[in-house]
Computed example of a mutant assay.
Amino acid sequence: MKKVAVLLSGAGFYDGAEINEAVLTLLHISKQGAGYQCFAPDIAQADTINHVKNEDTGEKRNVLVESARIARGDVQPLSQLKVEDFDALILPGGFGVAKNFCDFANKGADMSVNDEVLAIGRGFKEANKPAGYMCIAPVLLPHIYGEGVKLTVGNDKDVAGAISSMGGQHIDCGVRDIVVDDKYQLVTTPAYMLAETPADADAGIGELVEKVLYMA
């Protein structure tokens, strides 16, 4: 059975992983007959947002503990992820990626990436193992794969411009489609960068998971 490492950045799209994207990812991995293990860095969240009012609550929360809400408790610290134990890597999106995995939300193209996240991403690259990144998560890719990496976040001009400034090659893409960089066995899809319904997100995420597992 193929096994996928899934990286979560919390729980809730304003300050963590986009929950629909995460659940759809796990669903499609299972429907493809593969297994998965969720991981998250054991670090403080950048902020905690009231999802009704979109306001900072001032609460202090932990990315690993919050990610456990999605993973039904079965989540491991990112420090325990061994690339050799997995066939592929997938990252759902959500603002947690742009706040907890990196600081893109505050610094844009001048962003830096969490050391553990960067090491794991590069580990899968160096092992020539496929990976899938969705929603805002592709902003990490120029740091992981280097200049010229092909990717999409949909058609957001500001984010695409930042990606280009960091050396990535952004390709506009519809919500139900994927972009594949065959050189790196890398798949991206816009998900909730464009999705207006769960069905929109489901279509692209399903394509991404199927392609990643095919390449694995």
Rank of each mutant, 00 (worst) to 15 (best):
I163Q: 00
T48D: 06
P77F: 15
A199S: 13
A119I: 00
E55Q: 15
G154N: 04
G58T: 11
K99W: 13
A119Q: 04
G161C: 10
F95R: 05
K82G: 09
M1F: 10
A195N: 13
K107M: 03
A131M: 12
A203L: 12
A98R: 07
P77S: 15
R176I: 05
V6T: 02
I144M: 04
D158H: 11
V113A: 10
A88T: 10
L89K: 03
A109F: 15
E207K: 14
V113W: 08
S9C: 08
N100K: 10
P138D: 13
A119S: 11
I205Y: 13
N50R: 07
M166Y: 12
A40D: 07
I70N: 10
D74F: 10
V179Y: 04
Y184C: 10
V65T: 14
F124R: 00
D158W: 09
A195D: 11
V52P: 04
N114S: 14
T197R: 15
L7N: 01
G146I: 05
I29E: 04
V212A: 15
N106Y: 10
V6Q: 01
T48L: 02
Y184E: 14
L27Q: 07
I70S: 06
Q80V: 11
A88M: 05
A162W: 06
A11T: 01
N155R: 12
C135W: 12
R122T: 03
V6E: 00
V212H: 11
I163E: 05
V153E: 02
G94T: 05
V65W: 02
D56G: 12
G161E: 09
A105L: 11
A71W: 14
G12L: 05
G154I: 03
R69M: 06
A88L: 04
N100C: 10
F104P: 09
A40Y: 09
Q45E: 06
L8I: 02
Q45F: 02
M1G: 13
D15N: 02
H170R: 11
C38G: 07
A71I: 12
G94I: 08
S9A: 15
A44H: 13
Y145V: 07
P138Y: 07
E147T: 12
I178Q: 09
S67M: 10
E84Q: 14
F39G: 05
Y36P: 08
C173A: 14
V23D: 01
I205C: 12
Q80C: 09
D47W: 09
G58S: 03
V97F: 01
F101M: 15
V139T: 14
A98K: 06
M193R: 07
P130C: 05
G174Y: 01
S164K: 14
G168Q: 11
A68N: 03
T25W: 04
D42Q: 00
L151Y: 02
V209R: 08
I29G: 06
F104D: 06
D202Y: 13
V139W: 13
